[in-house]
Design a protein around this nucleic acid. Structure first.
Lengths: 161, 161
DNA sequence: TGTAAATATTTAATGCTATTAAGTATATCA
DNA sequence: TGATATACTTAATAGCATTAAATATTTACA
């Protein structure tokens, strides 16, 4: 065996997968509540749109959210029905379709963020501020390595301080 | 605003969600490769069964993998078609259904674990061993707080060392 | 200029999963 | 024995992932 079961790498890998699975599942149920009524792909799509100033091309949105263009069409359809996004065709290239979050969409996002924050406090409350700082840095390093910044503002996603 | 956007809590929450989303998505595509041909729920179900010695009740399996009983029935159906699990009814309570991983299922799991390991090395290679140790501990603390140990052997999931 | 190729997106078809409600079989309890 | 509870499956609906084909528009080239 090159990598025994108690290899620290293995443990971290399992922990990350477990965290992803559990986190997605709990978040899915939060989003499904009547006051939000979103799916996880819908949330991520809307979230990315909130980072964009102005309109965002479907193809860019698909890449940014790691979805196929075909899936994204349906997701945006449903966001449109709920009046959380707007769709349009630019005049300079009428093949493209562009999307933007509406005010209503942005408001919903902040309500979700608040609810998620409260739900997560329970989990993070057991960890000291110093450790949280360290955790933030390490998670950021991992995300960067996975080839995806957090799209927060324009600066590099996770500066050392 | 009680929690400004650059609140360290918020950043960690976003990082965890992002990690979950990206991780699940990349893992989904790895599992979909012809040599594995599994979905993420199928993988997690099989993984939990591999932790169980002997047979596992459907209701226990559903709770352990955070799935509804109704969903789990279908997932197990498909694992059964691929001969990765076995199903049976115990004599002492014939309402129950119990499931166990087959040898074939366990072999597939180790092959997947190996492939995932290689894929993740790229990401974890940028982080020093000391930091990895710290990351392991922090992730473990979070998972424990989320009410789920890693089911590794019998001992508590993430001892301090 | 006119036509072929490339690009951007949608549509259609299939399969899997989540959710809810209803159904079936077995066990328990009075 | 008969009502109720338990364990699970089935059925119906909706959403997403994937693939291939279809549509519309732009670009390129001859």
């Amino acid at each position: 065996m090159t990598t025994p079961a108690d290899d620290p790498f293995m443990q971290i890998e399992r922990a990350i997968l477990q965290l992803g699975w559990l986190g997605q599942r709990q978040f899915m149920q939060l989003l499904a509540e009547e006051r939000f009524d979103l799916t996880v792909p819908q949330y991520y799509t809307l979230l990315h749109l909130s980072y964009c100033s102005g309109m965002c091309k479907m193809s860019d949105l698909a890449r940014a959210t790691s979805q196929s263009a075909a899936s994204l069409t349906g997701v945006v359809d449903r966001l449109l029905e709920k009046h959380l996004v707007e769709r349009g065709r630019p005049d300079d290239d009428r093949r493209q379709v562009v999307v933007a979050a509406t005010e209503r969409g942005r408001i919903l996002l902040t309500r979700i963020e608040r609810a998620r924050h409260e739900a997560m406090q329970t989990t993070l409350a057991h960890i000291s501020p110093t450790e949280l700082q360290e955790l933030r840095r390490l998670l950021g390093a991992m995300l960067d390595a996975m080839g995806n910044a957090l799209h927060q503002a324009d600066r590099s996603a996770f500066p050392e301080r």
